[in-house]
Design a protein around this nucleic acid. Structure first.
Length: 884
RNA sequence: GCUGGGGUGGCGGAAUAGGCAGACGCGCCGGACUUAGGAUCCGGUGGGGUUAUCCCGUGCGGGUUCAAGUCCCGCCCCCAGCACCA
């Protein structure tokens, strides 16, 4: 055995072995399957950095643990290689997206191989290859056939910088999630997937995932779906029924106006029923409001009166109808009833346009917190006795200052007066239903998924537009619709494919006449919404996948990825899985049985608000009075700790690190730094611990090897004595703890326990047998975390011969020994609840025995001289003695 | 504003199920080896202190309990997500 740890030499050696023995090849027919999957990456460059590694290190540890637990593991990897950044980079570097993408894939792959991650590369796929997107197109057709893919003209999010539409999920704070430009609204004809049809199931089935997915992801999805149970109420404007959705039907008698969203469909009906002057006014208003940013809309609640009046379903009173842009066209019915007294938004609108305010919900009691809040919102202090009432020595008169939004007791509400809000909602809904003027209704916040994009680098939508037959799906036999090669892919606000004559012009598959292809490509989230299914049958050239194979492996037993996909990829994938379940292709309707979301790897850098760029290199920075300045010109900087990314420049590249310290060191560093689900900042200290630890492992094992220690599989653990026994007891607890940590992905504490084990073995004088037992166990415990080093030691100690296996990963993980008996144990002593010392007593000693020891202890005796009143004894843990 | 997560040494972080707070590591201090530096090894390291068989200590204030980082009530702060959703 070599004296020094030399990862450069040993790592490629074992990577070769693993390849030669097909260690990672998933069997066709698994007996005990385990499907572990990391979210596949977008190949954004040629080089990986530490931020990337975390995801793969966790997945690899899980895969290896499962291998050693005897599972047939499926652990595939692929590339989410379609998408906007390929074009942007292509524009920047003047290289075609296809070429750029292929080069990056090569780079990523070779680095993943260099890390020795346990992928079954035979199943590799890339969403941008026609062998893959052929089936993305088929998926589109399946949805189309089921009525779940449709085209409509709608006000959609438009990113002026990316020059394409965006799904709701890709707009953050009114900005494009990629380029941060302000998103505009445009009315365009676009393709949508009808995810709203699945809203209830997506919500309800979260119950199946509870306990298996992080609670925060489940919560986010719940909020995103946003179910509200309410009441639909019809207000008639002449013959037009204006349907209103509300969760507060109890405030119905406080309605003083109706507001219609400018982008709702019912506006068309309204326009037909007003005079030409008013129509023009309304149209002007609509055009104005739709170019407003969300912030502008929020600031002033504006609207325009339509001149129409709607009839209240119970009082027959006429209330004015407005078009107002604080109402959302896409939510509920796109029409709301204005109840200024009990809704702050309506209140602001009513104040602006001098509309009456009717108070119809009062607090239950004329005192207390709610009542005071009510007075605060609705009343003003007064001196006069007129129309006023007294509370706590002060006189008040009604003068609403803001809305009172709490539930309470109804007043001024005809026969519903006196009911509680909840009771009233129920009764009003029933009554409306019997009058045919509405009833119970559920609204969801989630919108249909906008899937078309006016960009080049994506899967073409498999639809042909025929002047005679209309929309015609491409017959399956004609798939794939190949993305044509062009140098002219620059975004210009409409699809580049539209200008490629050979592509766009085609014949209608139905009638044969001249027709045009749909020019748009699909959102990349469509590609990634089913890739985990393709991995179960990646080479199938007859179908999207063979249901039999998919059902052998699905669902994914452990999915690992970033939390940022909570309301995007993770909800789309659930949706598509349910569609394919309904299509009869899957036996399970949830794709990911267990989800783990890893934390980010952060790194410090300095941002210059003067130069508007980041300075990742500490050498450019100097501190004065604790504040950072740029060395070269003295301008102030801001210290920031954020996610590693190329654009910030704060990356730690993986290549040089692995060259110097080895892949195992990189993995241990990242897994030891913090719990895997937590964000952490990468500093030099992060790697120090890992470098030292692995070197120390090597040295200790080198010495053991030199001393001629041979691994021992079974020891006579019942008959150990002295230090042998003490050590085995201790190390056995560590084995137990590490196994539990592995189950819960707590790799940081597992590594801490391995370190502890290594520290302990040095402290004792041990027999050759026990040292041999330690060698055998330690190597196998370390294997999932530092696979190359462990494999090397496995062979150095001839464990391959002992086990008759070629690789440590074909051997089982250690199990704690059973029936080990501790002779004595140290327990804490409390007197009157205060900690006073610790004593050693026989294992499972009786209370009397322990008291005897306490009484015999010099230091403790004096505390109990007054006499004992009560004793609480927890065997092997603690004794608490209460004195008189 | 709503929802979820969190607040523990100089730092990253441990602590089943209420039972000896600070595992493991980084840093720091001291020592060994060394011409020296690095590497390595050994010891120490929450604060205070009259150095003792002491006191204080897990964001703040109360409470429950023999016993609270852990449970309950009230507050403060940080992070993330959502946010005119009627």
């Amino acid at each position: 055995m070599q004296k020094d740890y030399d990862p450069k030499n040993i790592e490629p050696k074992w990577q070769r072995l693993w390849k030669d023995i097909n260690l990672y090849k998933a069997p066709e027919r698994p007996k005990r399957k385990f499907y572990v999957l990391e979210m596949f990456p977008y190949p954004s460059g040629k080089d990986l950095h530490m931020g990337h590694l975390k995801n793969y290190a966790i997945g690899d540890a899980v895969a290896r643990i499962k291998m050693m637990q005897g599972y047939d593991v499926l652990h595939p990897m692929g590339w989410d290689s379609f998408g906007l950044p390929a074009e942007n980079a292509a524009i920047q570097w003047g290289i075609h997206p296809k070429e750029w993408t292929e080069e990056n894939i090569k780079g990523f792959k070779s680095q993943l191989e260099r890390l020795g991650i346990s992928y079954d590369w035979d199943r590799e796929l890339a969403t941008s290859s026609s062998e893959y997107y052929k089936w993305t197109q088929k998926l589109f057709l399946i949805l189309y056939k089921r009525g779940l893919a449709y085209r409509k003209g709608a006000w959609v999010n438009w990113c002026p910088s990316c020059k394409t539409v965006l799904a709701n999920e890709q707009v953050i704070d009114g900005k494009c999630e990629r380029c941060k430009s302000k998103v505009e609204k445009r009315k365009l004809i676009q393709w949508f997937f009808k995810i709203t049809d699945y809203a209830e199931r997506l919500l309800k089935d979260l119950d199946k995932l509870r306990g298996h997915w992080p609670e925060h992801v489940i919560k986010q999805q719940e909020n995103w779906i946003g179910k509200s149970v309410g009441v639909e109420i019809v207000f008639k404007v002449g013959d037009i029924p204006l349907k209103v959705f509300t969760t507060r039907a109890d405030t119905l008698f406080g309605v003083t106006f109706i507001s219609v969203a400018p982008d709702s469909e019912i506006v068309e009906d309204i326009l037909k029923n007003v005079g030409p002057e008013t129509r023009e006014k309304i149209i002007d208003y609509i055009n104005e409001s739709l170019i407003k940013s969300p912030e502008e809309r929020e600031k002033g609640k504006t609207g325009v009166f339509t001149g129409l009046y709607a009839k209240h379903p119970f009082t027959d009173e006429e209330v004015p109808v407005y078009v107002a842009d604080y109402v959302l066209g896409e939510y509920g019915t796109g029409v709301v009833m204005g109840v200024p007294a009990h809704d702050q938004r309506d209140f602001e609108f009513a104040t602006r346009y001098n509309l009456p305010i009717k108070i119809v919900v009062f607090p239950e009691k004329n005192e207390g917190k709610d009542f005071e809040e009510f007075i605060d919102a609705m009343c003003e202090e007064t001196e006069s006795e007129d129309y006023s009432f007294e509370y706590k020595g002060k006189r008040y008169v009604f003068k609403p200052k803001r809305a009172y939004e709490k539930k309470g007791i109804l007043k001024n509400s005809l026969k519903f007066t006196g009911l509680s809000s909840d009771e009233a909602i129920k009764r009003i809904a029933e009554e409306l239903e019997s009058k045919n003027l509405g009833g119970r209704k559920t609204a969801y916040r989630i919108r249909d998924w906008l899937v078309s994009r006016q960009r080049y680098w994506g899967a073409p939508i498999p639809i042909i537009h025929c002047p005679k037959c209309g929309e015609v799906p491409v017959p399956e036999k004609d798939l794939p619709i190949i993305l044509p090669h062009t140098e002219n892919f620059l975004p210009k606000g409409r699809s580049p494919l539209e200008d490629i004559e050979d592509f766009i012009n085609t014949k209608c598959p139905k009638c044969g006449s001249d027709a045009k292809r749909d020019p748009d490509t699909m959102d990349t989230f469509v590609d990634s919404s089913w890739y985990f299914l393709r991995f179960t049958d990646p080479k199938n050239d007859e179908d999207i996948f063979d249901p039999e194979k998919a059902n052998l492996w699905m669902p994914v037993d452990q999915y690992i990825g970033g939390a940022e996909h909570a309301t995007k990829h993770l909800i789309y994938a659930r949706f598509i899985t349910k569609v394919l379940y309904d299509e009869g292709m899957l036996e399970y309707d949830e794709p990911f049985a267990n989800l783990f979301t890893q934390g980010l790897v952060l790194k410090k850098f300095w941002w210059s608000p003067v130069h508007l760029k980041s300075f990742p290199n500490p050498e450019d920075v100097e501190y004065k009075d604790g504040k950072p300045y740029l060395k070269k010109d003295g301008t102030p900087l801001e210290e920031r700790v954020e996610m590693m990314s190329k654009s910030r420049g704060n990356i730690v590249p993986l290549g040089p690190f692995v060259d110097r310290y080895g892949a195992d060191t990189a993995r241990v560093a990242i897994l030891f730094a913090a719990p895997p689900d937590m964000d952490f900042e990468w500093t030099d200290a992060t790697s120090t611990a890992a470098i030292r630890f692995l070197n120390r492992v090597w040295r200790v094992f080198y010495e053991l090897h030199e001393e001629g220690i041979r691994p021992v599989r079974v020891i006579d653990h019942q008959n150990l004595k002295g230090e042998d026994k003490e050590f085995v007891l201790k190390f056995n607890d560590l084995i137990d703890g590490i196994m539990k940590d592995y189950d819960k992905f707590k790799f940081n504490t597992a590594i801490a326990k391995l370190m502890e084990g290594l520290n302990e073995v040095d402290k004792y004088k041990l027999s050759k047998e026990v040292l041999g037992w330690f060698v055998d166990n330690f190597i196998r415990l370390l294997a999932p975390i530092a696979p190359h080093l462990s494999e090397e030691l496995f062979h150095e100690f001839s464990m391959d011969e002992m086990y008759g296996k070629k690789s440590v990963f074909q051997t089982p993980l250690p199990q704690p020994l059973k029936g080990l008996k501790k002779e004595s144990v140290e327990i804490g002593v409390q007197i009157n609840g205060r900690f006073r010392g610790r004593i050693t007593v026989p294992f499972n000693a009786s209370e009397d025995k322990v008291l005897e020891v306490v009484k015999g202890d010099e230091r403790l005796r004096r505390y109990i001289s007054k006499g004992i009143k009560k004793v609480i004894y927890v065997p092997n843990k603690i004794i608490n003695i209460i004195t008189v």
